[in-house]
Amino acid sequence: MSGPEQDQELEDFLARRSPVYQRLSERDHAEPPPELDRLVAATAREAIDKQTRVPIFRSSRWALPVALAATVVLSLAVVLNLGRNVLTHNDAAAPVTAMKSEQAMEPRDTTRPRESAPVVTADMAVASSTPAAAPSPSSEAPVPVLEAESAGANSATRRIANDALVAANPAALRRQSIPANAERDDAIRGAVPTQDDAASVNATAAGNADDQTSSGRIRDEPQPPVLSASTRGTAPPVAPSAESAPTARDGSAPALTDEARRANPQAWLREIEQLRAAGKAAEAAREMAAFREAFPEHPRSAVATPPVK
């Protein structure tokens, strides 16, 4: 079927030189109906109208559902977090309230003044109790045992002890780091009372002013008498300074300054006693007058009367 005749016919057809088919094609003239033209034109016009109505910033198909899902998730997270914060706040406030109520309900035990928390910073407590805190074998030596009298001091002492233990056994640091930190925070919290507790703590500290000044006091020293409330108010609840250092019993210690005397009436009284013992009656009387002027409401029984000569 691929003879020369067919090839010639094909060449004529390809060269558009075949009049037969051309004539047939012209006779078989077919045109699309006008309705079809209108339909196609309407389709094209509608597509252009839709295109012009499309906004400039055209978001993807997934943008809307993703935005909705993200909004819902974020809203839920915020609501849940708010609820959790409220619960946490309530939980945190409950112990403080309980502590306050316990402090209010618990009667102040004047026989155990050493358990009250003085106004002493943790650093000061650490500094004062460092020699006794180290768990070394030498701690059993007849070294004077220093009292860690306040809760802050106890915590600070515990911290020092923990540090020493950790230094000896580093693995203990990893195991006990979290409780140690918690205890340290508790110690700081206990050593530095809140503003709400300042009045009660200060009153207690003033009542135990002697204890404050004797963070390095020897244990066998006699207990000071309890001061009255008015006396507590006059005594500033501050940590003892270097001037109010423990006084030696031999009386060879230097005389106290006026500020130290006013801060520590017991030390002042001891100084007066020492003056009397030394035979300086006039000076002792002068000091006694100054003492009564400074502490007019100090109980008379607490003030030693001069021996009758």
Binding site: A30, P32, L36
Partner: peptide, 27 residues
């Protein structure tokens, strides 16, 4: 041009090819 929104361009294009395409499909 029609893709850019020129409807006239499409009408011209359509008028140029409508008859031959219709004959092709009809036959």
């Amino acid at each position: 041009r029609y893709a850019r929104g020129d409807l006239r361009a499409f009408e011209t294009l359509y008028g140029r090819h409508r008859s031959s395409l219709y004959r092709y499909l009809t036959r």
